[in-house]
Design a protein around this nucleic acid. Structure first.
Length: 728
DNA sequence: AGCACGCCGACT
DNA sequence: GTCGGCGTGCTC
């Protein structure tokens, strides 16, 4: 009988350990391969994370794997190292972490797709007799002649944006104007970058980043909107690609950055793929697999792409580093920017963090010299980001959220044929449905939240749990007529339509672009519509270059000024500055107006005063005094239960545990979570702070072990959020 | 988590 | 008499 081989397997269950299995006779499974196995009474997909000659368990109790699914490991050793770290650091079961890093199709056990069939490459000589061909065909020939190397259909489409089909190229071929040549495994050459037009600062940044290739280095690329961060990304990427390395670019949301995708594809035709959750399952699998096989050289993706398999990775870029979308807000609460940095460290490669408004964490590390700080202080066109002006809403009466000075400024901007962006961070029609007579307010039956009025749908909606009910006209208590209080984007849209009849008006928020593809279409409309008004939530502050914005108005920042949340102030500054970055172009300065009832608030003074580093100085002092990040480490433990009593009781026990295990860790709470009741469940939370990451980590780990050894009732949930981004 | 076992209430 | 409620125990 041949020798038995045992392996340790991770499965997609909230059990933070590995399970031992016997390999099928005559076969061997290796680390990073998927396997199919019976687990309890069900059949699951697992990933091999270890192999031992001698089983730890009584061999009689060890089951045999049903099948080994992959012919080779699909996760590389550095990827596995990253995933093991994630499991420990974020206190999350290893199996869930590892399976989470795979595309859904592979998680379900689908086979790896076959290697791509050899593609045809197209090339042109100097064809004769093409003087009278159509513009479309001309564009194809010009593109091929310009590049002077064979291109795939996809590369040609990246380059021309024509959306060509194979048949069209075959027609050109039959006329003898282009030639088809079989696929050769040659990495397409990277076209030379723009030799001119880069500012000295851009040149310096590119040189620095290139100099870091093959080393552990983190760069903060700190530049105002329009200062040309993208060119720096592209040239840094070109260098890595030229060294035959792969490049990973992370973006907060792919749908909001269609222009970045387009520019990257044009610069590196045929080498770029996008990876994000909006892709169909099969497509996502193919992109993942082609990246793993080294076929895709540059991968552009959202948060989860930080786990993508890139065997020859040479550079990671994190665009808009400050964006909270990089932090997963449920389940495995990882921060993709932090993991990008860790991955760069593990694989010894440079990581570039780009932002006009970096987080305090990143800025402090840059100041400490842990990151190299690259500044882009000037826009290539010489324009300056517009200053921020306040409109005091105590002086100027607001009607449906709008003041006369803002309306006047908008009118002037529209007369110049430019666009106005009006930002308001509240979806829906009105903040609340209330009775002026008796004070009754429509509350969510499941949450501690007011219902938001959605006039178009004739419903009152809870933005926490999604509960929705028909819009009542009269107060259930006193039968008086109800009024809509506070402003939402829908109400603002209606008010603006009244003030500016006949002016093109568009709304952009989660309600208006719910379906797939609608956001892209909406962004395209904005860019092509000429003069007009766009009303929206912060989504509007994020999308990239809009060419004609002359004015940005922010209707109400006051929630951000008085929020207890630790990052509220920082995020308010970021929002206003990002929004301000949309306004103005060379020779046509823009305007930014912020309506506030508190123009003397320190944050509002800071906004008017000057540059971002100056603005955040007081915030840094506050954080330092409180021992909060980036000067201390933080974790949040949240307990939720069906009754407030159970929630509090178990949270108190947990806090006792944590205090018992904590050394140099302050354990605050439990306290009711800011939204105590959500979805008919009651939430308590405990905040942990420590100047030493290791101490915080140990307290969490020990308490979790204790907790798992003495499990609470099943209807109770405990979630750990390491490095939380909000306390809510 | 997911699934089975197990022990108590209202149904043909 | 049994169908089914969810408490608790386990998964190599």
């Amino acid at each position: 009988m041949s020798r038995e081989i045992f392996v340790q397997v991770a499965v997609d269950r909230p059990l933070d350990r590995l399970f031992e299995y016997r390999c099928p006779e005559g076969k061997e499974a290796f680390e990073g391969q998927r396997v199919r196995l019976t687990f309890g009474r069900s059949t699951l997909i697992g990933v091999v994370l270890g192999s031992g000659k001698v089983p730890e368990l009584d061999p009689a109790r060890i089951r045999t794997l049903e099948a080994i699914l992959d012919p080779e490991p699909i996760l590389t050793p550095p990827q596995l190292e990253l995933l093991r770290f994630v499991s420990r650091y974020y206190q999350h079961p290893i199996g869930e972490v590892v399976l989470n890093a795979l595309p859904p199709a592979l998680r379900k056990g689908n086979p790896l797709p076959e290697p791509r069939r050899p593609e045809i490459l197209w090339q042109t000589d100097q064809p004769e007799g093409t003087a009278r061909i159509g513009a479309r065909q001309r564009a194809v020939l010009d593109a091929l002649a310009l590049v002077a190397v064979p291109l795939t259909l996809q590369a040609l489409n990246d380059l021309t944006g024509l959306g060509l089909r194979g048949a069209e190229l075959e027609r050109l071929q039959s006329r003898g104007w282009i030639r088809a040549i079989p696929w050769t495994p040659v990495v397409p050459p990277t076209p030379a970058g723009p030799a001119v037009g880069l500012t000295p600062e851009q040149q310096a940044a590119i040189t620095q980043i290139r100099g870091g290739s093959g080393q552990r280095a983190v760069f903060l690329l700190d530049g105002v909107t329009g200062s040309g961060k993208t060119e720096v990304y592209l040239e840094a990427a070109a260098h890595a690609l030229g060294q035959n390395r792969q490049v990973l670019i992370l973006v907060p949301e792919i749908a909001l950055t269609p222009q970045l995708v387009q520019r990257v594809s044009r610069r590196f035709p045929g080498q770029v793929a996008a990876l994000h959750s909006g892709l169909a399952e099969g497509e996502r699998l193919r992109v993942w697999e082609q990246a793993r096989r080294g076929h895709h050289r540059l991968l552009l993706g959202t948060r989860s792409a930080v786990f993508a398999p890139l065997p020859q990775l040479g550079l990671i870029i994190v665009d808009e580093e400050h964006d909270p979308a990089y932090k997963q807000q449920d389940g495995l609460r990882y921060h993709a920017r932090d993991l990008a940095i860790l991955r760069g460290h593990i694989e010894s490669l440079p990581v570039v963090l780009g932002s006009a408004t970096p987080t305090l964490e990143t800025l402090v590390r840059a100041r400490d010299g842990r990151y190299q700080h690259l500044h882009l202080s000037k826009r290539p066109d010489g324009s300056l980001p517009p200053p921020v002006a306040c409109i005091d809403t105590r002086v100027h009466h607001t009607d449906e959220g709008l003041t006369i000075p803002l309306l006047d400024a908008m009118r002037r901007t529209l007369e110049q044929g430019r666009q106005c962006f009006v930002l308001l961070n509240r979806r829906g029609f009105a903040r609340a449905l209330a009775c002026d007579h008796c004070g009754w307010v429509a509350d969510c039956p499941h949450c501690d939240a007011r219902l938001t009025v959605h006039a178009a749908a004739h419903r009152a909606v809870c933005h926490l749990c999604g509960h929705s009910q028909p819009l009542a006209g009269h107060c259930p208590e006193c039968a008086q007529e109800l009024t809509h209080q506070g402003i939402g984007t829908q109400r603002l849209e209606r008010a603006l339509a009244r003030h500016f009849p006949g002016t093109p008006l568009l709304r952009l928020d989660r309600d208006s672009v719910r379906r797939r593809g609608e956001l892209e279409r909406c962004l395209e409309t904005i860019r092509s519509m000429g003069s007009g008004i766009v009303v929206g939530t912060q989504m509007l502050a994020k999308g990239h270059d809009y060419p004609r914005v002359g004015l940005v108005g922010i209707i109400d920042v006051d929630q951000g000024l008085f929020s207890v949340d630790l990052r509220a102030a920082e995020q308010t500054l970021q929002l206003v500055l990002q929004a301000a970055g949309r306004a103005g172009r060379a020779g046509e300065p823009g305007e930014v107006w912020v309506q506030t009832g508190h123009p003397e608030h320190p944050l509002m003074r800071a906004l008017r005063a000057g540059d971002y580093p100056t603005m955040i100085e007081p915030l840094l002092h506050e954080r330092e005094a409180a021992g909060m990040p980036p000067f201390g480490f933080m974790a949040l433990v949240r307990v939720d239960a069906p009754t407030p009593e159970a929630s509090l009781h178990h949270a108190e026990n947990l806090a006792l545990d944590l205090r018992r295990h904590a050394r140099d860790v302050s354990v605050l709470g439990p306290a009711p979570a800011p939204r105590h009741r959500v979805n008919q469940r009651y939430r308590e939370q405990i905040l942990l702070l420590s100047p030493l990451r290791a101490n915080l980590h140990k307290a969490l780990h020990d308490a979790r072990m204790h907790w798992e050894a003495h499990p609470p009732p099943r209807n109770l949930r405990v979630a750990i959020d390491v490095d939380p981004i909000t306390l809510g």
